[in-house]
Design a protein around this nucleic acid. Sequence first.
DNA 1: AAGTTCTTATTAC
DNA 2: CTAACGGTAATAAGAACTT
Length: 348
Amino acid sequence: MSIVLHIDMDYFFAQIEERENPQFKGKPIIVGADPREGAGRGVVSTCNYEARKFGVKSGMPISRSYKLIPKAIYLPVNMELYKKVSDSIFKIIRDFSEIMEEVSLDEAYIDLTEKVNNFEEAEKIGLKIKEKIFQKEELTCSVGIAKNKMIAKITCELAKPNGLRVTLPEKSSDFLSSMDITVIPGIGAKTKQKIKEYLKKEEVKVSDARAISKKNLKDIFGKRGDEFYFKFRGEDRSIVEVKKKAKSIGREYTFQKDTKDSKKIIKVFKHLISSVSDKSKKDNVQINGVVITCRFEDFETHTKQKTFSEGYYDKDFLYKKSIPLLLKFLVGSNKKVRLIGFRVKLSK
DNA sequence: AAGTTCTTATTAC
DNA sequence: CTAACGGTAATAAGAACTT
């Protein structure tokens, strides 16, 4: 039996901004797109709990957030700073186990199986991690501890903010029973809808989903069906693994106003290629293909890609490979363009 | 028929 | 105008292709 710890920083970007700007503490803070620029086409990245009281959430269109609280403090995303803080935090966590998986800038798992004898000892480590992070960075986080990654993550969610919780192995299945199925990582809105239709129910709890046989889950969801069957029962065989190399690098851009101006589009496209190329060079990666994304005014999104033999390619090469693909979009449609994207595929 | 490439859909943070 | 919806990345399924 494993012992897994999941750690998640509380309202990360907004909490850092509170720390950097103590005069804003206690007021609603929203980190994300500028609500004025481009009629507010972006979204909320993170907000603090004061802002959440007004119904603001991560991922919400900034225009809507602005209607909810125009008087909130709107701050731009300062990714460079957050990355630096993130590095410092991961360094602290890694001291407690080298088996660490970074999920995002503010979230990680560590495997404590070989480090502790039981869940009480794991809890002590969790408290120690919280303490060290607060000492070093003046930031709070939440911790979930359980027998696998999935249960640890859901447990951590319940502990927020600034909490720590343990779900003992024998409780793993029961504690999921009354929860909505979307608590299961990998089950989102679409999957929930399918399950609702299958069960002919309005709301689906994890316990309801257990009624679906393994075979039926497989028929509906293919390869993932088998995994769902176990997850509904509190089982998750995925391991805490140190993530290796990226498989792709990309950039995309949404225009402030939808446009058909090819000159403008190509100009932005060149910037995207340039940025991806710089990043690829910095990471010293080999490229073996390009993917171009185009989102039209009606939100319809299409991609075109081209694979080629791997190598260290420069901007000019990438441009020559991808511009014909972009032009196909531009000549093939009368619609205005909302977003374009450029991504390179990397070989192992 | 198998292996590779291309496209779309879904999810997560 | 009459719902609003970023950017980055991974994974899976199925179609389309090449060999």
